[in-house]
Design a binder for these strands. Structure first.
Lengths: 328, 328
DNA sequence: ATGAAAGCGCTAACAC
DNA sequence: GTGTTAGCGCTTTCAT
């Protein structure tokens, strides 16, 4: 690996001059500039970023924390963040946290030691104090960590209300909810939205809510329990698409026809939802946009850390597919 | 951020001594060691990795190139690589290349400038020469780039043969193939395996092979063409699961019942395959293991670059699900 | 057992 | 316009 010294020697200039043409700042004669560029080409010289970063105290790297990249919601988010940050010259570090606070803290330390310039976090477990210890900009994505952390989310509660109203509009009379883990802010909000719409209905019973986890299997189990106990249910609002897959499976196992006997709507809008049969009606988040916005916001904060904290909410959109149908 | 100097001052020793206790090498008195450790704790000191790396010429970072993390095959691979490398103290960089040689080269340069310690590559476009320019260890994963690059793959050809033989065993008489892009080595091998089994059958016609791309939509189109032209087809071997989704959709659109009228088997074993209806019979790759093995191999090469080049092949496994059934 | 000092490769004052 | 030099934070000879 050639160094700046080699280039300087070959071009018969000082390293300062080479540095000047490298960063195109300061005056440098056109002739000598050409000599330096020639030397750079001949030596296949690339500046050593580690040395640069040591001097500058930054690294041109950003990191994304997700619970688990294998959850199909996250790859699109990750892709968006990578695209945007790469376009701005950043290198993209991916961290799977499993929503484990110890892993998160370990990552935070490791990244700080590497002078990472900023972090985007999808987390339900991390605490504000551990974030404040490191002094790089952090953005919360998809889930709210604390109101004094800038964030990008969707209007989960309103979206949930809209989903439930949609089921009502197509004629569902008894609407249940398969909820997500309660410690996750966004699914908690989705349950709130569900309750907003149904808690005063004469038919509503607390047992119309079954709590699941972010996987189809658990959702299937809970749905089986629900539908066995409450065969009158004709509509289900599910906390997310992945769980929606389990709800569909449960209905199939119980020989309940979707959408004929039961309408199912979920939340997220992941690609999986249109691949399965029946395809899932859903309140779709603009997933890529969420990631892209978070990345843009982060980069802005890296350039100017004294921006005011904003909690940006993006709209969800109803996508009607095969799992819902108007009842007669 | 406290530096090693601050620690040294507080502990009344030189920076050399602090460094010694940090790296636990060289002699250092038990008493002074305790003083230093106390100072470290009091200052919340964490060594600056950038400075360390500048000195050592390495970075404790590894990178993974994938075409697109949104393709559901890759998140599991990425997860495995991240898990294994993190356990060894490495930071994980993810690069989406879109199988674009220019992006790949840009990444290669950027990573080299950051002194990345090693790279795992899933690529159909990259050339050996561009890899050899950078002198860090590189492992090819999932697809063979060149025989002088260490690699981890599955036995695609044998797996494909086994898939076709399985269709024959359950009584399929005319078996077609929806193939992947021809420039991708592994799907080319799968087509070879298909041909190995059927090219001498009296019923075989070259038009039983339709070439698709790595997405359900294109596979659906191709399958519609195929089944319209050749209604006698009663078995299809599909190059991968994602395309298998499209094949199932095509069959549904044409009112062809799977598995009653048509058996479908694909390749990969991604989670999606068991979520859809009918669930996909497939030749499953041990995806996580592939990634983990590649990561282990890479780390070994980082520690000792003079290992002999091996091309490791891992076995695939038939998983029978709902999309295939014995014909009567 | 510990310290002084050089140097990893680069950038930015500061001179001239 | 260009060169000299200090220094980013760390590790490692080389002395003592």
């Amino acid at each position: 690996m050639a160094t700046i010294k080699d280039v300087a020697k070959l071009a018969n200039v000082s390293t300062a001059t080479v540095s000047r043409v490298l960063n195109s700042n300061g005056y440098v004669n056109e002739k000598t500039k050409e000599r330096v560029e020639k030397a750079i080409r001949e030596l296949d010289y690339l500046p050593n970023d580690v040395a640069r970063n040591l001097f500058k105290g930054r690294s041109k790297m950003i990191a994304l924390f997700v619970p688990d990249i294998m959850n199909p919601f996250f790859p699109e988010l990750a892709r968006a963040v990578e695209d945007v940050t790469r376009d701005h010259g950043y290198t993209f570090i991916l961290c799977n946290t499993d929503d484990d606070i110890h892993k998160e803290i370990a990552y935070l330390n490791a990244l700080q030691q590497k002078s990472v310039d900023g972090i985007i976090i999808v987390s339900s477990t991390i605490t504000t104090s551990s974030i404040q210890k490191i002094k790089v900009p952090v953005i919360a994505l998809d889930r709210i960590v604390s109101s004094d952390l800038p964030s990008i989310t969707v209007n989960n509660r309103d979206g949930a209300r809209e989903a439930v109203r949609y089921l009502q509009a197509i004629g569902c009379k008894q609407i249940a909810h398969i909820s997500g883990p309660e410690e996750v802010s966004n699914t908690a909000l989705r349950m709130q939205g569900y309750l907003d719409e149904v808690k005063n209905e004469h038919w509503f019973k607390p047992s119309y809510i079954q709590q699941g986890e972010y996987n189809p299997d658990r959702a299937m189990e809970e749905t089986k329990k629900l539908l066995t106990k409450h065969p009158e249910i004709d509509g289900i609002f599910v906390a997310n698409d992945l769980m929606g897959v389990g709800v569909l499976k449960a209905a199939k196992a119980l020989h309940i026809k979707v959408p004929d006997d039961l309408s199912v709507i979920s939340f997220d809008g992941i690609a999986l939802g249109e691949m399965i049969t029946p395809s899932l009606t859903t309140m779709a988040q603009p997933i890529y946009d969420l990631g892209a916005r978070a990345a843009e916001m982060l980069i802005k904060r890296i350039k100017n850390p004294n921006q005011k904290i904003i909690n940006e909410e993006i709209e969800v959109e109803l996508i009607v597919r095969e799992s819902t149908r108007a009842r007669s």
